[in-house]
Structure formats: structure tokens, C-alpha cells
Amino acid sequence: MQQPAERRSNRERTETTRRDLIAAARKLFTEKSYAETSTPEIVAAAGVTRGALYHHFEDKQALFRAVVEHEAELVAAEIERAAPDTLPARKALIAGGEAFIKAMATPGRTRLLLLDGPAVLGRAEMDAIDARHGTRTLRAGIAFAMRDGVMKRLSLDAVTALVSSAFDRAALAIDAGAPVEDYRKALTALIEGLTPGR
């Protein structure tokens, strides 16, 4: 009867070590950049052995990928909380967009997802990560607006890509010090222009 408890304990330890590595790496990647962060620094910050790092991740890039994926999950979760299925299509897109801007204000997130992510992992891999998270939520919102008749039926892929790019550019500008309210209003106007109604 002792064995299942031990297995669960080992699994919990494994998950804790993985979480600690991701948290330590995130802190260092955002403070110093991916290029300037070494694996010995990550190991020391996480309080684990080098062997533990390589047990969980093939290399530094694999750990970075896990950090980026986790950040993208957090952004998508905030968007989904702000824009539940019960909201009308236009309001859901606006609320989701505002949640994205708010989520991207978390220190270091813009750097991870919009600057270092594409540089380290490549555009194709970042697009795949986005497609599982933030872009997935945007695509669903745009599809809902088209089905609901408040947005003209155009290529779903094209509209999603263009609106996503607008939000990413806004996040980069805000991170560089541009006024949040200016971009929030502009993005709301963009969504309103795309969703004039039936």
C-alpha cells in the first residue's frame, strides 16, 4: 500500500523541480536575456543540480521553450477569463483585447513572447505556440463574430493574423513607454470598425 503514495510523492517532486527551473529561468531570461543567461546560473537560482536540469530539459533552448509556452498559457487564460462565451461577439473581442494588453504588462512578458521568443525559437515555432494559446482565443472570437453576423466574412486566417499583429505591435509600443490608453482606444476602434454589425 506504500507504493502508490511513493509514486505520487516522486511525481510531485518532479513537478516541483520542473516548476522551479521554469521560474528561475524566467527570472533570469527577463533580467539578462536568453543569450546572457547560462545554465549554471539557472541551476543555482533554482536550487537544483545540473543533472536535474538535463533530466527535465534537453538544453537551455528547451527550457526557454517551456518558459515561453507557460507565459503564453497565462496570457490565454487571462483572455478567456475576461471574454467568456456569454458575452456578445463584439464585446468579447474588445474585452479579450483589453485582457491581452493587461496580461502583456506583466514585467518581462513582452520580451519573452514578442522579442526573444521569435529570435530564439524562430517565427514558425512561435506561431505554433501562439496558435495553441493567445491566437487560438483571438481566432475563436473572430470566428464567433463572423458567424454572428457582426463581422464581414473574410479569410479567418488573414483577419486573425492582421488583428494579432496589431495587438502585438501595441504591446511592444506600450512596453517601450507609449501611453496605454492611446493604444487601448485605438485597438477598441479597430475592433469596432471590423464589427459594424449586421
Rank of each mutant, 00 (worst) to 15 (best):
T30L: 01
E71K: 09
D157K: 10
L87N: 04
L194N: 04
L115Q: 11
A189W: 07
A170N: 00
M146P: 04
S164E: 05
A143K: 13
F144D: 10
P84T: 08
D168A: 13
V75E: 02
E125K: 07
S165P: 02
R11H: 06
D130Y: 15
A186H: 10
K27D: 02
A176R: 11
P179Y: 15
R136P: 00
Q2V: 14
F29P: 01
R139Y: 06
A44H: 14
R13E: 04
L154C: 11
M104E: 02
A166E: 02
L156V: 04
R153H: 10
K27M: 06
A131F: 07
T135A: 12
T110G: 08
A128N: 11
E71R: 11
G197R: 08
I22E: 02
L113V: 01
G149R: 05
R13D: 03
P118L: 09
V163Q: 02
V120F: 08
R50T: 13
L93Y: 07
V163H: 04
L21W: 04
A166D: 02
L138T: 00
L74F: 09
E181R: 15
F64M: 09
A25Q: 00
P196G: 10
F29Y: 14
E36T: 09
M104D: 01
A66R: 10
K152R: 15
M104F: 12
D85N: 12
A35E: 02
A131S: 15
V120M: 06
F100H: 08
M126V: 03
R169L: 09
L53I: 11
D175S: 11
E58D: 08
K32S: 13
D116R: 10
T86D: 02
S9K: 13
A76G: 02
P107L: 11
E41H: 13
P107C: 09
V68I: 05
S38T: 15
D175T: 06
G141F: 03
A140S: 13
A131I: 06
E71G: 13
R198H: 14
P179G: 09
D127P: 09
T30S: 01
L112T: 05
A105V: 03
S33C: 06
T137V: 15
V43W: 08
N10Y: 08
E58G: 10
S9L: 13
T110D: 07
Q2E: 11
I22G: 09
L74E: 14
E98V: 06
E31P: 01
A140I: 02
A178R: 12
H133G: 04
T30F: 03
A128I: 03
E41K: 09
K102M: 09
E78Y: 07
D20F: 04
M104G: 05
K152F: 07
E15L: 12
P40F: 04
A176P: 01
Y54D: 01
A45N: 05
K60L: 04
E181H: 15
V68W: 06
L194D: 00
A76K: 06
S33W: 10
Q61Y: 06
T137P: 05
I22V: 15
L154Y: 14
A131T: 05
A62C: 05
A103R: 04
A52K: 10
A171V: 01
E71C: 13
R19N: 04
V159L: 13
P179N: 12
T14W: 11
K60G: 00
D127I: 02
R7I: 00
R8S: 14
